[in-house]
Design a protein around this nucleic acid. Structure first.
Length: 401
DNA sequence: ACAGGACCTCGACA
DNA sequence: ATGTCGAGGTCCT
């Protein structure tokens, strides 16, 4: 049995953890679990995702309205009509993608734009009943090819995870001890705009509230939406929309607190730099430089900048040190590092450098494995102390230390 | 360079 | 029924 965890913008595929199985999918930010499948918006489409041990299963069940978004990679003109509810599991063939293919020519992770345009190749997909079909880029099949490309890009399936795990186990005894129950954990390649503003919301905050805030942000400022099976899905707002007048005031009324100003100021700053394309272009900079640019943004410190670098700028060595990672360090790696009472800038950098040296160029990916393990412990602890509480809503409570 | 405190909000907990 | 605490940080002294 395989399960998925979604955490703070990290999409975690966890296989065969075995124990008790009280662990469950945790929908965070913009993916939620509906009828057993993760449902959310990606690249202008509404998806349902699930997985087996070997395949990712997906359905595209809707599309958000197409509005001009010239600067954002991965957006293409959509022809399918929106607002058309499609019944899941009803006449729609679930498609599978092999989780890890070896035949790819390039080692480098592909960017969305490249994946979208390199559709000249033939793609093989296994259907649910095991039949293998071949898709070419022509007529109606082109769209399916694009869908596959989007998911391959999102899950970064060209990254050979097993090789990386092997290396990390070899170099780090503690990783070797912890990782077997947490295989298959990949970093998602997320959209920089969405990622950035979501993590600005995360400061001094807890996950359940962040999710609500991001949702309200979309409802208030996205013009692109569609409804599927009674649920409304939004594209993420444009930076331009968030840079408008009165944004801070409105967001404060929506419960964003002091982060309202961060969002407004950051959006305005990005527009001054030339808009979303400026943000996307940070991908082309080396890690340190991209991070330095991000830290200039209001409400963006070292941690949020590293989240953006790792999850949406292809900086695979970025290590976001949040309270969880700080705990992990102090518990499991303390002997390797100098100790400070609080997380200072200097210590922050030392931790990142230490792990990059230990784990290599994909250190950020390795760190998320330990993060996932820690999260699991946290959840098990929580659920075991919470047995009597039985609410209908999926309340995510945080247990304080 | 480091420590300390404020900051919005809202469930847990006492 | 109220009061305090702290949450996947950032910013300012």
């Amino acid at each position: 049995m395989t399960e998925w965890l979604l955490s703070g913008g990290r999409f975690l595929a966890v296989s065969g953890a075995g124990s008790g199985s009280d662990a469950r999918v945790r929908p965070v930010f913009r993916w939620s679990k509906i009828q057993g499948a993760l449902t959310g918006v990606l690249a202008g489409r509404v998806w349902r995702l699930s997985q087996t041990d070997t395949h990712i299963l997906y359905q595209v069940i809707g599309q958000v309205d197409n509005q001009p978004l010239p600067s954002r990679p991965g957006r293409k003109k959509q022809k399918r009509k929106s607002n058309t509810p499609i019944e899941p599991n009803n006449g729609v063939v679930e498609k599978k993608i092999k989780s890890e293919e070896k035949a790819d020519t390039k080692e480098q992770p592909k960017m969305m734009t490249q994946a979208m345009t390199s559709n000249t190749k033939v793609t093989k997909i296994k259907t649910e009943d095991g039949e293998e079909i071949t898709l070419k880029t022509e007529d109606g099949l082109a769209e399916k090819n694009i869908e596959v490309s989007i998911l391959r890009d999102y899950f970064q399936l060209d990254v050979k995870l097993t090789d990386l795990y092997e290396q990390w186990c070899k170099d780090d005894p503690h990783f070797k001890q912890v990782s077997p129950n947490f295989t298959g954990i990949r970093m998602l390649r997320q959209d920089p705009v969405e990622n950035l503003f979501s993590f600005i919301c995360s400061s001094n905050n807890h996950i359940s509230r962040i999710s609500g805030m991001v949702e309200r942000l979309c409802e208030a400022y996205s013009a692109r939406l569609c409804e599927v099976c009674g649920v409304t899905y939004y594209a993420f707002p444009t930076v331009s929309a968030l840079a408008g007048r009165g944004v801070e005031e409105r967001l404060r009324k929506l419960g964003f607190g002091y982060r309202a100003r961060y969002i407004s100021e950051t959006a305005q700053y990005i527009m001054e730099q030339g808009g979303e394309s400026w943000l996307y272009n940070l991908k082309t900079l080396p890690y340190e430089e991209a991070k330095a640019e991000l830290i200039k943004l209001s409400g963006v410190g070292a941690k949020v900048a590293d989240c953006v670098c790792l999850m949406s700028m292809d900086k695979t060595g970025a290590i976001p040190v949040d309270t969880h990672v700080w705990q992990i360090v102090n518990r499991d790696y303390k002997h390797k590092l100098g100790t400070t009472k609080t997380l200072t800038d200097k210590t922050y950098k030392e931790i990142g450098d230490f792990f990059r040296q230990l784990w290599g160029p994909y250190a950020g990916w390795a760190h998320s494995v330990l993060f996932a393990a820690d999260l699991r412990k946290f959840q098990e602890l929580k659920t075991s102390t919470e047995k009597k509480v039985d609410t209908k809503k999926s309340v995510k409570k945080k247990k304080s230390r």
